[in-house]
């Protein structure tokens, strides 16, 4: 497997740990997020996801370990001009209008007035808030507030965007909007780290995910179609000999036989007809073939358990 080059990593952590009082929030976070990825960060409540994000943003100081974002140590103030962040519970000065809020955050990014005059209307339009640009934020619904939070995270056209539960409070139209925005950011070349409980959203949006439990990454997983072991094929065929089963190894490294049933993991659904042709040519009576994708939700439940880590 080709090693990811150091310079290709947007986020790199080694043994990152955070202890609050006597409570371990993040035990040992070791993570590599390549440039240009939409990376899902999954785990049950209290797994340490938000604390990890806050450490990467310099909001929480790590107890030990090391971390870099965009090639600089976390906490480096200048690097933050290339970072966007939507906190889990985005709070703001609710006496401002959306335009004023974006201008304030833009000024904090060091953006000029001229640049903001150009950028703010574009972002308000992007998140569908142009008709409400002069309303006070205290009159906004939860979904509208989430949209303005998303807009402030994109103000500086960041290279790295942290989105902590970005679809929280959004209706299906808003969720679709978030998906489209994330896609556009990926196409622009930005890296997105997405914290979300909505596994369906993550599955649609992300290239890869990390499952975190008890403050540790327990598994990282590519979500692209051509990755091996993504599809499990279950075949009901009573007369499969050991020799025929061995012949299946050209399509799968994992072949299991039990009673009349063969179970094998394959890299792509496209190989299923080939397998069937092979079995029939070998004289096997094939009664049933069921390709199944192990959903992210099933894998999530396998990893964290049905108690959600509580």
């Amino acid at each position: 497997m080709e090693m990811t080059r150091f310079s290709d990593l947007t986020i790199r952590t080694r043994g990152l740990r955070k202890v609050f009082g006597g409570k371990v929030a993040v035990r040992n976070l070791t993570l590599d997020v390549p440039r240009g990825e939409v990376f899902g960060f999954l785990g049950p409540n209290g797994a340490g996801k938000s604390t990890s994000v806050k450490m990467l943003l310099g909001l929480v100081l790590p107890t030990s370990g090391e971390a870099q974002i965009l090639g600089c140590p976390v906490g480096d103030v200048k690097t933050r001009s290339r970072v966007g962040f939507l906190p889990e519970h985005f709070r703001f000065y609710d006496w401002l209008t959306p335009t004023e809020l974006l201008k304030l955050h833009g000024r904090l990014y060091g953006m000029s007035h001229a640049k903001l005059r150009e950028r703010v209307p574009v972002l308000l339009d992007l998140v569908g808030l142009t008709p409400h640009r002069d309303k006070s934020l205290r009159d906004f619904s939860k979904g509208m507030l989430q949209r303005i939070g998303l807009a402030q995270a994109l103000l500086n056209e960041p290279d790295l965007i942290f989105l902590d539960e970005p679809t929280s409070g959004l209706d299906p139209v808003g969720r679709r909007l978030v998906r489209d925005i994330i896609k556009a950011q990926r196409e622009r070349g930005a890296t997105v780290l997405l914290n979300s409980h909505l596994l369906g959203e993550v599955e649609i949006t992300c290239n890869s995910v990390a499952f975190i439990k008890d403050g540790e990454v327990v598994e990282t997983r590519q979500l692209d179609d051509d990755i091996e072991d993504q599809i499990t094929v279950s075949i009901r065929a009573p007369n499969v000999t050991a020799e025929i089963a061995d012949g299946l190894s050209r399509w799968s490294r994992s072949v299991r036989t039990k009673c009349e049933r063969l179970t094998l993991s394959v890299s792509s659904g496209a190989v299923v007809p080939e397998i069937v042709r092979y079995l029939v040519a070998s004289g096997v009576d094939v009664y049933e073939v069921t390709p199944q994708r192990l959903s992210l939700e099933e894998r999530f439940l396998e990893i964290v358990g049905t108690d959600g880590g509580l």
Binding site: T79, R80, F85, F90, R91, G149
Partner: peptide
């Protein structure tokens, strides 16, 4: 108040010491 409510997070994550 801003620390408790989290308002400070979006501010402190900006490139301002």
């Amino acid at each position: 108040g801003e620390i408790a409510s989290g308002t400070i997070q979006a501010i402190a994550a900006k490139p301002v010491p």
